[in-house]
Each structure stands twice: as structure tokens, then as C-alpha cells.
């Protein structure tokens, strides 16, 4: 009896501004027989938006090369915790490992886009007057992401394209399986990703998503993970108040998840002596 060590369990908390606070509401909700997750309040959601906004100038102003390096570093850190994530995902071991591997590979894929998307989406425009005219894509700002139910691969597939271009985000983790999202936050926290670039909330989607959809300092909204059509419609309507860029479908084709949250800026300058 005495030779069996009692394990030290992890408290799953929120991830806001690079720190791991509990919900300011003091609430949590049961996820498994033995584990709870923090149940974020709308105040936590607002705090997360503030953290994301604060991180935006630095992250969007970092070089594309630097952002690519950091995403690649996230992939490295995730690879190193392969077994831990497979445990947390549960189910058949082989499938769980495949999920983790796919998430790592997706991070690597998006990491490489950091310094290529502008070349693909930008244009040099041959205007009919003596001007240099260039269009280039830029991050839209703070994006709220309602992450899909798939707890790790879904999360990574939603977050990586949003941040690689320079956006910062507030993520509502999958409601029923939020724990891998918080463990993923530990990966982010040890990857040189500046605090506030990714903020992760666990809790009830119905309680958090509408507040983020209506938040006037959020510029983009990814509704991929919204579970009911009524909720999706309500969020889409609320998003129109400040014309958030909204991604509704689980579109994973090509560059769509990146370009959905990019603006095109066109700069003119006269050419002459």
C-alpha cells in the first residue's frame, strides 16, 4: 500500500496573455471522472481580447521569417510531447498518435507559409499612370476562434493559419474535450510565442462565443466549431455590428483559412524625377 506513489495531478486552467489563470468567476466544470477544466466567464473572454490586442502590434510587426521559425518551434515542442498528447486524446493508441503526428505536420506546413503568402496573394498592379502600385496581404487583427470538436488536430488546424500571418487570437476550446487544448497551451508557452498571441478559453461555447462574436475589438471570427445552426446564425448576425470577417464552413482548401483573415492593402507612389 505504501509503495504506491500518489500522482501529482495537473490543474487545467485558462491561457491568457501567456499566463495560466483560473477563471475570474472561480468556476470549473467536470470533463472526465477525475478532471475538471476552468469554466471561463465573459469577463475572461474580454480579458483575453485585451491580451490579444496588446500582442497584435508586436506579432504582426515581427518578420515573417521569425513567425515561421516560431511556428516551426511549436511543431518541435509538440513532437516532443507526442506520448503525452496521445495519452490525453485517449482511444486506440495508434489513432491517437496519428492525430498528434498530423497536428505536428500541419504546423510545419503553415510555418512555411509565413514568408510565402504575400508572394502568392500580393500583386504589382500595372496602373495606367506614372505610379508604383503594390497590393499586399496583411493580418486583420484579433480573431476569435471557436475551435472544432476534434481536440488537438482541429485546434491546431484553426489556430496555425490565423497566427502565421500575424493575427492574434482568442480560442474557445472544444467544450467536451478541452484538456488537450490547455496542454497545447503549455507547448505554445515554451515555443517563444509571445504571450497574448494565442489565448485559450475553456468552458461553455454558448456562454463565450456570442460575447466574442459581438465584441467590438475583435476583427475576425472563425465559427468552424460552432455546434448548433442557431448559435452559428446568432454569432454571424452579431459579427455584422463591426463587420468582422467571418469564416463559417470547415473549409480547409489551400490557403483559404489564412486569407479569410487577411486584408489587402494597396500602396500608391508617384514615379518621377
Amino acid at each position: 500500500m505504501s509503495d504506491r506513489r500518489v500522482s501529482v495531478r495537473k490543474t487545467y486552467k485558462l491561457f491568457i496573455g501567456g499566463a495560466f489563470p483560473r477563471s475570474e468567476s472561480g468556476r470549473s466544470y467536470p470533463v472526465t471522472r477525475t478532471e475538471h477544466a476552468a469554466r471561463a466567464s465573459r469577463k475572461d473572454a474580454r480579458d483575453a481580447v485585451v491580451a490579444a490586442r496588446k500582442a497584435f502590434p508586436g506579432w504582426s510587426g515581427a518578420t515573417a521569417y521569425n513567425r515561421g521559425q516560431i511556428l516551426y518551434r511549436v511543431a518541435e515542442m509538440l513532437e516532443g510531447r507526442r506520448a503525452q498528447f496521445a495519452d490525453e486524446l485517449g482511444g486506440p493508441r495508434k489513432q491517437a498518435l496519428e492525430q498528434v503526428d498530423a497536428a505536428v505536420d500541419r504546423l510545419v506546413w503553415y510555418a512555411g507559409w509565413s514568408d510565402k503568402i504575400a508572394a502568392v496573394r500580393g500583386t504589382a498592379n500595372p496602373v495606367a499612370s506614372p505610379y508604383l502600385n503594390l497590393s499586399s496581404p496583411e493580418p486583420v487583427g484579433v480573431v476569435a476562434v471557436v475551435a472544432p470538436a476534434d481536440p488537438l488536430l482541429g485546434l491546431v488546424s484553426a489556430v496555425a493559419p490565423v497566427i502565421v500571418t500575424g493575427n492574434t487570437c482568442v480560442v474557445v476550446a472544444a467544450e467536451r474535450a478541452p484538456l488537450p487544448a490547455i496542454t497545447f497551451a503549455e507547448v505554445l508557452a515554451t515555443s517563444d510565442l509571445p504571450g497574448g498571441v494565442v489565448n485559450i478559453l475553456t468552458g461553455h461555447q454558448a456562454e463565450l462565443a456570442p460575447w466574442l462574436a459581438a465584441h467590438m475589438d475583435v476583427n475576425g471570427l472563425d465559427l468552424t466549431g460552432v455546434t448548433t445552426p442557431e448559435q452559428a446564425l446568432a454569432c454571424e448576425r452579431a459579427a455584422t455590428e463591426n463587420f468582422k470577417r467571418v469564416l463559417t464552413a470547415a473549409e480547409d482548401r489551400g490557403t483559404r483559412r489564412m486569407t479569410a483573415f487577411m486584408e489587402t492593402k494597396t500602396v500608391w507612389h508617384p514615379a518621377g524625377i
Binding site: Y131, T264, T266
Partner: peptide
């Protein structure tokens, strides 16, 4: 969406136009 440097209100069909926010 459009920044005019040392000019203003220039338009061209080859040049994308539209806004942020």
C-alpha cells in the same frame, strides 16, 4: 485598404480598392 503616398484619390481598374474594419 489604400494608402496614397505623395498623392491622393488615384484610381485604376488594375488596382484593388476596399476597406479595413
Amino acid at each position: 485598404g489604400v494608402v496614397w503616398a505623395n498623392t491622393f484619390n488615384k484610381f485604376d481598374p488594375a488596382s484593388p480598392f476596399g476597406g479595413y474594419k
